[in-house]
């Protein structure tokens, strides 16, 4: 399935859940999904006979600046050999996205990573805690406005 067909399919199934899309002029066509519908969309994309996205290749967080965070899902279907990118935009003040860890287990750690690095909250995640940074770390390091602390546990952090 090409990106346009996938978009049309999604638009007819989830009319209000699909916000916008960019299908031409980009290397990876993407579709923007409402943060509170992502779980339904993900389940549909995995289970539907026409899409069969069985592999979540990559889930990443992005700081879009101007108070917006994004979660980006790169989906791939090994059976049908097509791909699509889903994006979810959430405000920094209320960074809640539905977790897709129940759909693809690989999302478990990647959502933890996005939480660790950007402070995005994935509702329904089985075990949302820091994965890379120590548990007692303060702040989310990959946010644009992040300030490196002077000391951590008595160790000087900057050079």
């Amino acid at each position: 399935m090409i990106a346009q067909e996938l978009y049309d399919l999604l638009k007819t199934t989830f009319s209000d859940g699909i916000l916008e899309a960019k299908l031409d002029g980009v290397i990876d066509p993407w579709v923007s999904v409402a943060p509170d519908r992502i779980l339904d969309v993900a389940r549909f994309l995995r289970d539907d006979e026409r899409t069969q996205f069985d592999l979540l290749t990559l889930l990443s967080g992005v700081d879009m600046t101007k108070g917006t965070l994004a979660a980006v899902y790169h989906l791939y279907s090994m059976k049908r050999n097509h791909k699509i990118v889903l994006k979810t935009f959430v405000p920094e003040t209320h960074p809640h996205v539905q977790s897709v860890a129940s759909i693809w287990r690989t999302a478990d750690w990647q959502e933890r990573e996005a939480f660790d690095m950007y402070g995005m909250i994935f509702d329904g995640h089985p075990d949302l805690r820091r994965i890379l940074m120590p548990d007692d770390w303060d702040g989310h390091p990959l946010r644009k406005d992040y300030q490196v602390p002077e000391f951590y546990n008595g160790m000087k952090v900057p050079y």
């Binding site: 980009v26 290397i27 990876d28 290749t57 990559l58 990443s60 967080g61 992005v62 700081d63 879009m64 600046t65 980006v72 790169h74 690095m117 990959l142 946010r143 644009k144």
Partner: peptide, 25 residues
């Protein structure tokens, strides 16, 4: 694309290649 937060993210690229321990994106 991954974890980068450009001031004006206009284009993003993403390549998948085979890798000794798996695919790398």
């Amino acid at each position: 694309v991954r974890y980068t937060c450009a001031p004006r993210p206009r284009r993003a690229s993403w390549g998948t290649t085979s890798y000794p321990t798996g695919e790398v994106d």
